[in-house]
Design a protein around this nucleic acid. Structure first.
Lengths: 218, 218
DNA sequence: ACGAGCACTACACATGTGTGTAGCATAAAG
DNA sequence: CTTTATGCTACACACATGTGTAGTGCTCGT
């Protein structure tokens, strides 16, 4: 049995196929990535892909499930060595995602991987729970709502990776790019775009609009 | 000539094809959307699509170019009636995007539409230029860097539309969903996740890591 | 030793899709 | 009226791709 190999180095053909699939799905997207391409990348025949996973769709779902498991593991790990992550949470999270970053981005952007996103929302909620303690005023929205939008915002980075790289002038995959991103995020997260007063007034205006909707015909 | 029709109602076959393409590209993605499907949605033959646009790729580029033009127009419009947009910038921006929201999201997530993103960065820069006036401390990063990341974050909403809807428990397309999102964004944008002190210390830690990179083997 | 099961391959099939070509109708220009 | 251009359609081709089927060698249990 190849089980021994699997436990030692995770080099079983099935695992290799999964890894190749995640790589190619992430690189080309689900449609453009072909079973034959994945098979070739994994060093196996295309038939074996079907043998192990049944169909392309099922292969995708297996990748999703694997990533959910990995994300959970990373999340637990991140709790322990909070030393390094404290300095650069987003950066270290991305670093941990590593080769799965592109897959994650594609999966979310294409609308799959609902459980993955929900898991990250849950992680954000835990983070927020702590942050809320140091907050005097009542939030405008529920913790879950804020965690959802917050998580989504964090996921922007891997999803729009190349656009952001272009905007920053450095590839985010390089140390320089990662550093610049981290500093920029630090600035954004520590400087509110709106003052409490303007926010309150906007909120009031919003409530007024809610009762008397604008005259748009839609 | 059908030019008269075009100027009056934008109902020329070419425009109908473009609109149908943007809708289907947005709904299904570039690969899964077929020329035949687009042709059917536009009420024309599949050959006409090719006749007008040459190829599927060129059709996509035409859609991109059209959207850039539209975004520019919307941006100019937004400057005039700043009354309503002031209360809910993101919401009104999304409302303006309307049917093109999904296309924009797909285009960016799939890596096309670089000029589109860059245009939105430029818009963010203008926004930031004004905001920076009321800011005493020097920013951590250049305005363009902050505008890039900020724009990307804003674009999260249309890109992860369905995930956010699921997390909020309301479809963002409904007035209730839009309202909840607006309120949540207001809260996030008015409450920094980090205090200036922690941000400063994290920044220092980041600089230290920069000089002595972590022991990860990658 | 031997048969059963599994990992794995080679090959064929059906189909959807982008693209190319030929042709028709309508209308403006001469 | 004829000619020409153009918006538009119908049809066919080449090809890639997901999927299905048959077959082979190897390993393990008995």
């Amino acid at each position: 049995m190849a089980r021994i190999e699997a436990d030692l180095e995770d080099l079983t053909a099935r695992a290799r196929i999964r890894d190749a699939a995640m790589r190619l799905f992430g690189e080309y997207g689900f449609e453009r990535a072909t079973i034959r391409g994945i098979a070739e990348a994994a060093g196996v025949s295309s038939g074996l892909v079907r043998h192990h996973f049944g169909s392309k769709q099922a292969l995708r779902e297996a990748c999703d499930a694997y990533l959910v498991k990995e994300i959970r593991r990373m999340n637990d790990e991140a709790r322990t060595d909070s030393m390094r992550t404290a300095a650069n949470p987003v950066g270290s999270a991305l670093a941990k995602l590593g080769p799965y970053q592109r897959y994650l981005a594609r999966a979310l952007a294409e609308g799959w991987a609902a459980p993955l996103f929900d898991e990250m929302v849950r992680m954000s909620e835990e983070w927020l729970e702590e942050a809320d303690k140091a907050r005097p005023d009542p939030p405008f929205a529920s913790r879950k709502a804020r965690a959802t939008v917050g998580a989504a915002m964090g996921l922007t980075v891997p999803i729009l990776h190349q656009h952001i790289s272009r905007g920053l002038g450095v590839d985010l995959a390089t140390p320089q790019g990662a550093h610049l991103l981290a500093v920029t995020l630090l600035d954004i997260y520590s400087h509110p775009m709106l003052t409490p007063e303007t926010a309150a007034s906007m909120r009031d205006a919003l409530e007024k609009l809610r009762n008397s909707p604008p005259s748009s015909p839609s």
